[in-house]
């Protein structure tokens, strides 16, 4: 997904920030004309904000409401307490902190590996001309179109037998689940190749004349230049890894190895009426870092999603 996306991401790169192409002749209209031309837009905007915010406010409110059942929850909190937040950390049957940690471990390992291996492959495709390059790129594009989880049945069989031989990587192990997700190691090749292509080749050639080998060119010249972009690519991948549910629900069945997605689902599914307080607090704590990250990286993310990343 690159040619179009490459061009779109160029043209859209201002979308994240405010459009500052303000015509100097424009002045703010007043009175009735303001309402006709500008004011009604604010009304639509406010309605949209209400639609976007109600569910979020409800959950935040429920997380602070000491009464755990749903019936007592209102949009505007009438009472305030941190009971639910405390209960996240003192119930051994639903070890929220453990699940949080598991999720971070999985996401950090998988995303680092994905960005590292993708960047390696992208370098080869961007800088070398070799037999099978075109075919390789197309095959990659094709294979990438098939989500790994479509093969879930086979993956389950595969890891059942892996577990018989190497119990450390079998079902119900974080290591096995991480290994499984490493199947997506080349997931970012196309995106990163686009960035590599934009680094002038003269830089490599100059370095090669100075006696640098291909690995030095890669690690010491190109990689540092694209590091910020790799970070953003990684963060987008991060969000999709922590949201992975299908494979996790099959591979991680024991409490101690669950990720947030499956762990929270188990709790909610167990008793939908009385776990809402716990669940709301869990949802708030899990969302805050991701939401902050999104706001902070808004303009890069807009570039990234228009380049074809679809968040799960």
């Amino acid at each position: 997904m690159s040619a179009t996306t490459q061009t779109t991401s160029d043209t859209l790169s201002t979308a994240g920030g405010p459009p500052l192409r303000r015509d100097p002749n424009d002045t703010q209209p007043h009175g009735a004309r303001w309402w006709r031309e500008i004011g009604w837009r604010h009304i639509v905007g406010v309605v949209a904000i209400v639609y976007a915010l109600i569910p979020i406010l409800y959950v935040v409110s429920a997380s602070f409401n000491p009464i755990g059942s749903v019936s007592a929850t209102n949009l505007i909190p009438t009472q305030f307490s941190l009971t639910h937040y405390e209960s996240l950390f003192n119930d051994p049957n639903r070890p929220y902190a453990r699940w949080y940690l598991n999720t971070i471990i999985v996401a950090v390992v998988v995303v680092s590996a994905q960005v590292f291996f993708s960047a390696l492959a992208a370098y080869a495709f961007s800088r070398f001309r070799f037999r099978g390059r075109r075919g390789g790129l197309l095959t990659l594009l094709l294979v990438q179109m098939f989500p790994q989880f479509l093969a879930v049945v086979a993956l389950f069989q595969l890891f059942s037998s892996v577990g018989e031989v190497f119990p450390a990587f079998g079902l119900d192990t974080l290591a096995g689940y991480i290994l499984l997700l490493l199947g997506g190691s080349l997931g970012q090749v196309w995106l990163i190749k686009g960035f590599f292509d934009s680094v002038p080749k003269e830089l490599d050639e100059a370095a090669k004349i100075d006696g640098a080998g291909h690995a030095q060119v890669y690690f010491q010249i190109i990689l540092p230049l694209v590091r910020p972009i790799l970070a953003v690519t990684g963060l987008i991948a991060f969000v999709s890894v922590i949201g992975e549910f299908l494979l996790a629900s099959i591979f991680l069945r024991e409490t101690a190895v669950k990720t947030l997605a499956v762990g929270m689902y188990t709790v909610l599914d167990g008793d939908r009426s009385n776990n809402l307080g716990w669940f709301a607090a869990a949802a708030v704590l899990a969302s805050i870092p991701v939401v902050l990250l999104f706001q902070y990286l808004q303009k890069y993310i807009v570039g990234g999603i228009t380049a074809g990343a679809v968040k799960g």
Binding site: I56, F279, A283, V290
Partner: peptide, 20 residues
């Protein structure tokens, strides 16, 4: 910034919240 919020919240959380 505000309209971005539903997109920023991890999808699995939004779905579970909505199911309730």
């Amino acid at each position: 910034s505000i309209l971005l919020l539903p997109y920023a919240i991890p999808g699995f959380i939004s779905l579970m919240v909505w199911s309730s």
